[in-house]
Amino acid sequence: MNVNWPRGDEDDSGRRTAGGGGASALPEVGALPEVGARSEAGALPAAEAVSASGVPPAAEVAPASGARTASAPPSASDASPAPDVLPALDELITAASSAEVDADGQAAALAAFRAARDSGAHRQGARTRRRDDWRPRTHARIAWRAVLGTLIAGLTVGGVAVAVSGGPGSGPDVDSSAPAATPAVPQREPESERDRAGTPDDLPEPGKERSARPSRPGDVRHEEALCRSLDKVGGKALDSAARQRLTEAAGPQGDVRAYCARLLAEAERAGTAGRGASTKEPDGQGAPTKEPDGQGAASTKEPDGQGAASTKEPEEQGAFTKQSDGQGAFTKQSDGQGASSQNDPLADR
């Protein structure tokens, strides 16, 4: 490698040292070592070594080493040498590479060009294969990304929308059936919550209850929805956040399928009572669509908590001791229980 320097220099030292013309190239020569000098101060002794080794054109090496000294101080950022090397190399190579084109090669290429042109290869039969198409493809790429994103969003949100029929997913649906749907959205919350809280006078205390309660059915229904989409898309396509939520909900043993089966069965049971009635009522009304839904959610929820409490009483107790005992008890007791942990947060809230 380093043999090249001396050898090249000796070969045309006469020509090289002759003109001041070499000075025009010096910035580029400097550009190379400059990059190196960033990462180490050893370049300085190295440069001295070169000039001391008796290479004739010391005049050229000297300015270069001068450039090194000048650029040595900002050598701090050792972490990212790459971005700086590129422009330096870039400049160096583009400045120089334009010169070297041999006439023979060009003549041969031109001959081939003429032959192809005259045989009509450039006109007919010039089918553009995929690898020949180098047009900028930003549009196509954006379109693909949009389609893909819509599909994925449709899969995940679609499942949610099926279960939470009163949720944000149903906005467009209501829009299409009843024009007065948009005002229904703000109406929905106070009404359903008043129903749930049972008290029209709602200042500080019901306010707290309100903030706590709606999250309860939401959780279960959301997991229900995730379970449904899990069934539909077959697990893998479910995005990681959704899957994690399900595994969390399914508890330490993490049997998502079993958990989902149970959850969906419960939802079915509750749904025949709650939502079955609600779908018939609200047809033309718009706002009521949401209202019974809140009830439906409340009704699905309550049996849920109760069912859990009734079927798994020991577990519920475990959960309570868990809370009072603290974390040491938590790990021990919850280990064997599996399903308890997913019911606990629901029941506790």
């Binding site: 380093n2 190196g36 990462s39 050893g42 370049a43």
Partner: peptide, 11 residues
């Protein structure tokens, strides 16, 4: 490359 360039003259 940056390392090589820096180290190269004194190898």
């Amino acid at each position: 490359l940056a390392g090589r360039i820096a180290a190269e003259p004194g190898v």
